[in-house]
Every structure is written in C-alpha cells, then in structure tokens.
C-alpha cells in the first residue's frame, strides 16, 4: 500500500479526522486547508487520491476540479468530493465537473475507507 492521499478541507477538525482514519488504513495523508492555491499544490506533486471539499475559502472545490481536469497530468486523477450539502443537485454537479466519487457529510468512517480503497482498485 502506501498510497498517497491529499485532503483539501478547510475545517481543521474534519481534516484531522480524515487524516487519522486513512492513516490507520495505511495511507500516506497530506492535508491542505486553502482553496486558492490547492490546484497548484496538487499539480506540483499529484497524489494517488484527492479528497476535495466543495465549500472552500478562496476557491470552490468545483473550480479546483475544473482546473485539474483541464491539465494533462491530473486529468485522470481519482477525486473523491465531500460536501455538506447533500442534495441530488450537488451530486450531479460534482459528476459533471468530473468527480470520481461523491460523499456527503457526515459520513461513516468505514464508508470513507471503503471508497478510498475502491478508487484505487485496478479498473
């Protein structure tokens, strides 16, 4: 294992929870809180998996995803979107912007681990 995951989440407590959960599952977890320079951070060192919050200060998760999908290096990067607005419209919007998976907050820790693992499974 030892896959690298980058968590872009402005809520420190949530970010810490994800870090703990995935670390325990054997992931190498990095966290980032600001939206504005998130895309640059991803491009600089693309992780194996990106967990992206929608409501970010500076730049919204959708904008960041658009930028990543537009760039060659991150076009196929698996992205798990997290949002606290769990309506169907938000799910569709995430798919349209190119999210690989979508989870609403709050989530079960086991579901997060399962999703992360599934996204790493060979296709």
């Amino acid at each position: 294992m030892g896959k690298r995951v980058l968590v872009i989440e402005d809520e420190a407590n949530i970010s810490e929870a994800i870090r703990y959960i995935l670390s325990k599952d054997g992931w190498e977890v990095d966290t980032h809180a600001d939206g504005a320079d998130a895309a640059a951070r991803v491009s600089a060192a693309p992780p194996d998996l990106l967990i992206l919050d929608v409501m970010l200060p500076g730049r919204s998760g959708y904008d960041i995803l658009d930028a990543l999908r537009a760039a060659e290096a991150t076009r196929a990067l698996p992205v798990l979107m997290l949002t606290a607005k769990g309506q169907t419209a938000d799910r569709e919007r995430a798919a349209r912007h190119g999210a690989t998976r979508f989870m609403t907050k709050p989530f079960a820790n086991a579901d997060l681990v399962a999703a992360a693992r599934a996204m790493m499974a060979p296709t």
Partner: peptide
Amino acid sequence: RTPMTSIRAFSEI
C-alpha cells in the same frame, strides 16, 4: 452538517 461530520467521525474513532 459540518460540526456533525466532526462529531460523527471522532466518535467512531
């Protein structure tokens, strides 16, 4: 949902 996410995640932890 935001505080509840933390509460649920940490309580499960």
